[in-house]
Amino acid sequence: MTKHKHILTHGLAAIALTLGTYSAAVSAEDYTKMTPKALAEHLIFKAGGFKLDEATQEGTTVTERQTQDGIQKACSALGSKTIDGDTAAKVNAMARKSIVKPDGGIKLGDWKKGQALARSGFGFRVGHRDDDHSKREPGGNCYACHQLDPNEIAFGTLGPSLAAYGKTRGTSEAMLNYAYEVIYNPHSYFPCTYMPRFGHNKVLTQEQISHVMAYLFDPESPVNQELKPQSW
C-alpha cells in the first residue's frame, strides 16, 4: 500500500512538474465533479493516460496527435448517433475550405505505385512499436476498408466497393476532381465519414494521391479488370 501510494504520488508529482499549474493534490474523487467529456480530456492530457511527449513521424509529439481539430470534435460529439443536418453542414463547410489542389491540375500517376500504396498499412503508428518512415514509405491502406481489385479476396467492408471504379465512371475532369477531393478530405462529400483525410492530414503526398487515383482510374489497373474464373 505505502509503496504503491508512493509511486502514484511520485508519478503525479512528475506530471505536476511538467505541467506547472497542475496540482498533485488532485484526488480521484474529483473525477465525479467533472462532466464525462471534461474527465476524458483530463485522463488523456493531465492524468498520465498517454505518453504525450513521444515524437511522431510528422515532427510533432503525441500531444498534437491527441488534440482534436474542428472536424474531429464535431464528429466525436455525435457519439453513437447518426449525423444531424447542422453538424453535416458545419463539417462539410470546414472540409470544403481545407482542400488544396495540386499545381498544374489533377493528373493520374502510376497505377503500380498506387497498388502498393493501396495494399500497405504501414505508417504513422507510434507507441510500443514505431513505424520508421525513413526505412519504408507509409501507405494508404485502402484495402483495409474497400474492395478494389475484384480478384483480391482480402478486402474490408467498412467502406463501399471500388471495384471497376474507372471503368464504370469514366475519367472526365469532373470525375477526377471528385475522386481527388474525396481522397484529400472525404468530409467534403460525406460529413463525419470514417475515412481518413489523406491529403489534409498529410498521410499521402500529392504525388502519392496521383498514384492511388491511377490505380482507381487507369484502364490497365487491376481495379478495372474482369473477375477471373476461380481455378479452385
Binding site: Y31, L39, A40, T56, E58, Q68, S76, P196, N201, K202
Partner: peptide, 24 residues
C-alpha cells in the same frame, strides 16, 4: 459515483476521434 464517472468518461474516449487517421 467514481465507477459511473469512469464508465462515462470511457464512453467519451471510445467515441473520441483523433490522430493522423481521425479514428475512434
Amino acid at each position: 459515483p467514481l465507477e459511473r464517472a469512469m464508465r462515462d468518461a470511457g464512453k467519451e474516449l471510445f467515441y473520441r476521434r483523433a490522430g493522423s487517421f481521425d479514428f475512434s
